[in-house]
């Protein structure tokens, strides 16, 4: 019998290991799986490579994970946000590596990872410093850059509604990287606001089909990360 719903954050993150590549959904605070990230802070696994669009705000969520020295490298498009304090400090001290990737290339590399495509060519970043050391090829008299797929050991994703098969619905622009990160992981861990019975999600409306999802944790009242950041709260392993 298939039932991907787990009872606790501990169970959700079972098997996560030092040195893993972890994708984290979200565009800034929107769609960031704060509770799963905080559970990862509690687990204290180290040397993670994190793939996420940003590098965290304030001292919660991804910023808390970075502040706890668990992240060796981050692959992202925009590590600088208005209230990003943790990443800039560690980066300037040489305590964290950054692979800067144009946002569309980042999305496509993740999608390719999930679709079994090892690499692809794109026009993005042609003639810029970000493509200096990359392989180029001419198609139709135009130059393209070779970009490699990214896969993850674990993806942490936030959604709005899930059923026991792992079919997912998202909320508005909190969808962002969620669906493609679900596809690109060996183990996809999803926190959902609500678990519904199989059949309650109209099959015509399913955004992420359950095959891309491994574990589901219901977090019915997720923290609003932007509020936590605004209140300058710091995650230190204790519930707020």
């Amino acid at each position: 019998m298939i039932d991907k719903v787990v009872k606790s954050a501990k169970e959700a993150l079972a098997g996560i290991f030092d040195g893993a590549t972890v994708m984290i959904s979200g565009f800034g605070e929107a769609g960031s799986p704060v509770e799963l990230i905080h559970a990862l802070v509690d687990r204290d696994v180290k040397n993670l490579t994190v793939v996420s669009n940003n590098a965290g705000s304030g001292h919660v969520g991804l910023a808390a994970l970075i502040e706890n020295r668990q992240v060796k490298k981050i692959i992202c498009s925009f590590p600088r946000t208005a209230i990003s304090v943790v990443f800039p400090e560690l980066y300037r001290n040489g305590e964290i590596d950054l692979e800067l990737v144009p946002q569309g290339t980042l999305a496509e590399r993740i999608r390719a990872g999930g679709a079994g495509i090892p690499a692809f060519y794109t026009r993005t970043s042609v003639n810029t410093s970000l493509s200096e050391k990359k392989e180029k090829r001419i198609f139709d008299k135009k130059e393209f850059v070779l970009e490699h797929a990214i896969k993850s050991d674990f993806s942490l994703v936030k959604c709005a509604v899930a059923d026991k098969y792992g079919n997912l619905l998202y909320n508005k622009t909190a969808r962002n990287f969620g669906p493609i990160m679900c596809m690109a992981a060996k183990t996809t861990i999803v926190q959902t606001k609500k678990v519904v019975k199989a059949g309650e999600i109209n099959p015509e409306h399913v955004v992420t089909p359950g095959i891309f999802v491994s574990r589901i944790l219901e977090v019915s009242h997720p923290a609003d990360e932007s509020k936590l950041v605004a209140e300058n709260l710091k995650y230190d392993g204790i519930k707020f």
Partner: peptide, 16 residues
């Protein structure tokens, strides 16, 4: 060199 590099979607927009 002291700035934190950040590119976002700008390079995708200009080519696409």
């Amino acid at each position: 060199p002291d700035a934190i590099p950040a590119v976002g979607g700008a390079m995708d927009l200009v080519v696409g």
